[in-house]
Design a protein around this nucleic acid. Structure first.
Length: 641
RNA sequence: GCCCAUAUAGCUCAGGGGUAGAGCACUUCCUUGGUAAGGAAGAGGUCGUCGGUUCAAUUCCGACUAUGGGCUCCA
């Protein structure tokens, strides 16, 4: 006599065992039709799941997050069914749910083509239309191995062989297609239909580059047509923000074959870059950092000593000269230790904060390169804090505050925190790892920040906090980092004299806020869709004349503004005002000043923004103080207000 | 590095076994026009590189390079 309690607290009593579907039909036919699964005592199950005893039940429909999850998972199976029907020799492997959709990996001798994708999608639509029941059954592990061996699904059989022999597995059958799956799934394929196959990609079996390359098909799936459409629209919007596209449009930078992964900065791009660098320089100075500059080409022996050659030797650019081997520095820290090692250091000098806009090179895998976001030659806003163990938490706290204030100035307010702990491949004693992991965790906790741990993801020399920011369309970018390092100072013989007169190795904190300038600029471009805040815009003001008559006035105005530190440029071409406005707008110039006879006569300037707002005629002084306020407030107090 | 795709004018792209086309940009001329494209003419390309097949390759095939999407990696 099960008594079923629903989320609203109401109870329903049944004589015999009931399924989720039975309860849903009992509540109403609409719900029975919409039910995709259920939670029995908190566990997600199929609608066919049966309750023999008293239970808490909530029914899952496409309106629930879990319902959408079920839809995506079942759509992955639907795709596998379609693929097996169209290409019987293809073997199925795994097909999980991912953000916005799903993928399924297949082992198949021939390569799928975009045409195949279309055919698969078409078949999926047909199968969905037929509302094929999806039936769950159970099977012993040994029977499952035998079954999948018998139908030559080698990868499935391999997965099952790794499962303990006594376990009972579940199978899901829809027509001619049966897949091993933990489930649950929607009750029939009629619940699926709002999907689109997105792309084809290679993926290693079990994510290991030593294994076979499988073919992965990515798809997106949604509860209804509207959500699918909205998602596809969002993708188009994201594409419009692509920094490679905008970088070309705005003439900011380029890359070319002869220097893969190295950026050629054009004048306007470099202006933005310099604005960022000057800003960081000033902020770091305020924070007590001493800026330094260290060599880019350094003898291999230093990298051998630091451990980099051992761990990353293949990814370093090397130069052989006069029987000696040098490497382009892949990071700045060993050089900063050399700086620390000059002269005898006292504990009174700690914490010593060194900063460098260090130019680094890493020979990233060719397939990993991406625009200016992932490059081989880059500059970090790198810094190293040499301190004592007792100072770690304090220094971490100061750094986190600093990082927050920098992100805010760039317009980012949401930060995500991850603590990466010791990897299998590492240097240093377990004791020092214990200490450093705890110091970082304590620093985060002291600030009441919400953080997650990433076990095993730390650097080889120490644990790290990774700071990611969320852009205006919700994408997450990892930028900042704070790493504790008990190892490198010792390896590179750094020491200071403590208050007892004893020599001790300092602790080193590696830290960056922006990460690489190249990547951060790419993020800014995408976040702002090229519409840089005034303080970063390559041209802040464009002065536009109506006819040749106002040329001299415009030139004088340009000089007046430039003398006051504004990036003002005039467009005196013999073109119509409409064209010049259009080009300035497309060029994302924040402010346009139009000068005609009227303006010269009245002594007031007409100001228009790149968002087509007319700010009307205003005194030059008003404009200048407004621009100044917008710049010094980093856009928090725009001229328009 | 691995899988798939792509590479045609400065840019965005079309085309196709018989040595190339559009729009925009560019140059010149006309136009001096009040807030997102004024008009006309002109110039511009060994079709990524190197091989192969063919009477003939930019087109078909292969290799390489780069780019794009993934996988792996990210000190």
């Amino acid at each position: 006599m099960p008594s079923i309690t629903l989320p609203d607290g109401s109870q329903r009593d049944y004589k015999d065992a009931v399924s989720v579907y039975d309860v849903a039909s009992d509540i109403g036919p609409g719900l029975a039709k919409a039910a995709l699964g259920g939670f029995i005592d908190g566990e997600l199950v199929d609608t066919s799941a049966v309750m023999e005893n008293d239970a808490q039940l909530s029914i899952v429909t496409s309106r629930d997050e879990q319902g959408l999850h079920l839809i995506r998972h079942s759509t992955a199976h639907l795709m596998a069914q379609a693929v097996k029907q169209l290409y019987p020799e293809a073997q199925v492997t795994i097909g999980p749910v991912i953000e916005d959709g799903f993928f399924y990996d297949f082992a198949y001798e021939k390569s799928f083509t975009p045409d195949d994708l279309e055919a698969i999608e078409k078949r999926m639509a047909e199968l969905a239309k037929n509302a094929i029941p999806i039936e769950r059954s159970e099977i012993s592990r040994n029977d499952a191995v035998a079954y999948f061996d018998s139908i030559s699904e080698d990868y499935k059989a391999e997965i099952i062989r790794d499962i303990p022999a006594e376990e009972i597995l579940s199978l899901y059958k829809q027509d001619d297609f049966t897949d091993l799956c933990r489930g649950p799934h929607v009750p029939h394929t009629g619940h699926l239909g709002h999907f689109k196959l997105m792309k084809l990609a290679g993926a290693y079996w079990r994510g290991d580059s030593d294994n076979a390359m499988l073919q992965r098909i990515y798809g997106t799936a949604w509860a209804n047509k509207k959500d699918l459409k909205a998602h596809l629209h969002n993708l188009e919007e994201a594409e419009k923000r692509d920094h490679r596209k905008i970088g070309k449009q705005l003439d900011l930078f380029h890359l070319q074959d002869e220097a893969p992964g190295m950026v050629f900065w054009h004048p306007d791009g470099w202006t933005i870059y310099q604005a960022i660098e000057q800003y960081m320089r000033q902020r770091q100075h305020e924070q007590g950092y001493k800026e330094v500059r260290t060599p880019q080409v350094v003898d291999m022996s230093l990298w051998e000593k630091s451990g980099h050659a051992d761990k990353f030797g293949d990814d370093m650019f090397t130069i052989d000269v006069d029987d000696k081997s040098f490497a382009l520095k892949p990071m700045n820290c060993p050089c900063h230790v050399q700086l620390f090692n000059q002269g005898l250091r006292s504990y009174r000098e700690l914490p010593l904060r060194l900063a460098e806009f260090g130019s680094c090179h890493r020979n990233e895998l060719s397939g990993a390169l991406h625009g200016i976001m992932r490059v081989r030659g880059f500059v970090q806003d790198d810094g190293h804090i040499f301190c004592t163990e007792d100072q770690i938490q304090q220094e971490s706290a100061i750094f986190i505050d600093f990082l927050h204030s920098v992100y805010k100035d760039f317009g980012f307010t949401e930060v995500i925190y991850r603590l990466s702990t010791r990897p299998a491949n590492r240097v240093g004693s377990d004791e020092s790892w214990d200490k450093s992991e705890k110091a970082l965790a304590d620093a985060l906790d002291a600030k009441n920040l919400d953080w997650k741990e990433l076990p095993g993801e730390g650097a080889f020399y120490g644990p790290k906090i990774e700071f990611s920011l969320k852009d205006c369309i919700g994408r997450v970018w990892q930028c900042g980092t704070l790493q504790v390092d008990f190892s490198m100072p010792e390896r590179l013989d750094a020491s200071f004299v403590d208050s007892e007169g004893e020599r001790r190795a300092p602790v080193m904190l590696h830290r960056a806020i922006l990460g690489s300038f190249e990547r951060f600029l790419g993020i800014l471009i995408e976040n702002y869709e090229g519409k840089m805040p005034l303080w970063l815009a390559p041209t802040q003001v464009r002065i536009i004349n109506i006819t040749d008559k106002q040329q001299d006035f415009c030139k004088n105005l340009e000089k007046t503004l430039a003398d006051q530190g504004f990036r003002a440029h005039s467009d005196l071409r013999n073109e119509k005002i409409g064209l010049k406005i259009r080009e300035a707008t497309l060029g994302r110039v924040p402010y346009m000043i139009v000068i005609g006879d009227k303006e010269i006569e009245s002594g007031k300037v007409s100001v228009r923004t790149r968002d087509a707002a007319e700010l009307g005629p205003m005194d030059l002084d008003t404009l200048v103080s407004g621009l100044t306020l917008e710049i010094t407030s980093r856009g928090r107090k725009p001229l328009e207000d």
